[in-house]
Design a protein around this nucleic acid. Sequence first.
DNA 1: GAAGTGACAAACTGCGTTATTCGTCACCGG
DNA 2: CCGGTGACGAATAACGCAGTTTGTCACTTC
Lengths: 208, 208
Amino acid sequence: MDLSPEQQDLPGQRGPHHHEMRERIVRAAEARFRHFGYGKTTVSEIAADLGVSSAYIYKFFGSKIAICEAVCASLLGRIDEALWAEARSPRTAAERLRRTYRLLLEHSLAMFFNDRRLHDMVITGLDQRWASISRHVEVMEEVARFLVQEGRASGEFERKSPLDEVAKAVASTFSPFCHPVLLEHGIDDDPGAKAEAVATIVLRGLSA
Amino acid sequence: MDLSPEQQDLPGQRGPHHHEMRERIVRAAEARFRHFGYGKTTVSEIAADLGVSSAYIYKFFGSKIAICEAVCASLLGRIDEALWAEARSPRTAAERLRRTYRLLLEHSLAMFFNDRRLHDMVITGLDQRWASISRHVEVMEEVARFLVQEGRASGEFERKSPLDEVAKAVASTFSPFCHPVLLEHGIDDDPGAKAEAVATIVLRGLSA
DNA sequence: GAAGTGACAAACTGCGTTATTCGTCACCGG
DNA sequence: CCGGTGACGAATAACGCAGTTTGTCACTTC
């Protein structure tokens, strides 16, 4: 259900799947990308940081963009983990869902303000429909479904409407708080308050 | 509250505000932009279509981009009008709000499929924060607030939570169905059904 | 056969130059 | 004063070329 990011199979991967070098490459690449951006780092530089030749990198990744996807997967994977951790915490489902909105917003804002270059990479990935990003939106849907189920099981939420439909709708309401492009636009208008307000309405809509 | 699009004042306008030529320019520009895109049309061509010189265009617009903004305002203005028409129709507030989701999605999809070039212009406008676009999101918020008020007045909706907060939250849930970038991404996954589902939850969240 | 490399062709980027296009201004005619 | 223009400098876009970077492959070493 929630693999660790490095275990996913992403397009453009190559060679042994579980290999220490693969992880080291991703970490080195992330550092460079964070600092200089995707365009301004060459794979030779990443290789040099690890003390190997660039040819060796290509034993693990089929292209530079594949490295970028892996970095992206790792980044989003960390958010996914935080999301699941919260979703499984010992609180009411309603409280967990409300916190999901907060958590999502918090992580998205953090990326926007602290690592603008990585944020821009994610935007690139978005309109090129990278698998790592689709995976992340799937996880958000799964978390939404899980929380709705939990709330139904505990009697907090109504049980009549089709689970899947409700889960998708809830996940849709996440987008203003997790989508990089929307975020950039609504950044000035107290997104925190908006997230709370949306959470409040949605929770009311779900309640038994 | 809802001016006709040509009457707004937009940055970069110049010369007489109510002038037949201004509207003719916007119409001619829209046709060219729709057909060839913003980048591939020159202001001389727009001028030629109207049988005037390009210098004359600059009596009305301070820059090419200002023309583009006016076209954008006109485009979005048509959507705004449809939204208001629906919002004032003689139906229950709940029904009107549900139809607002549909209407928004319908218009956005139409632009995406039929006039991709204009759609792309709107995206450009979005990350350059054109006034015409801010205006459109304001209108959507106003419509949301209006409908919530109506529903409260008629006893359909609860009356306790602060109106402004609720209106903003409702407007936030519009974004997956009206934001060009989000739309492009979620296009494959039955957006119509998603819109209905979101409407259902939000309406339940608003209900008395 | 796992770890690793140098040498190389193809693809891509940056950049300086040239050709368009943008936008201004002084000016014409009614 | 309103409707309109041609000629011109400034800003931009297109283009071709040199230099980098990407990505492959045959080969080495342990």
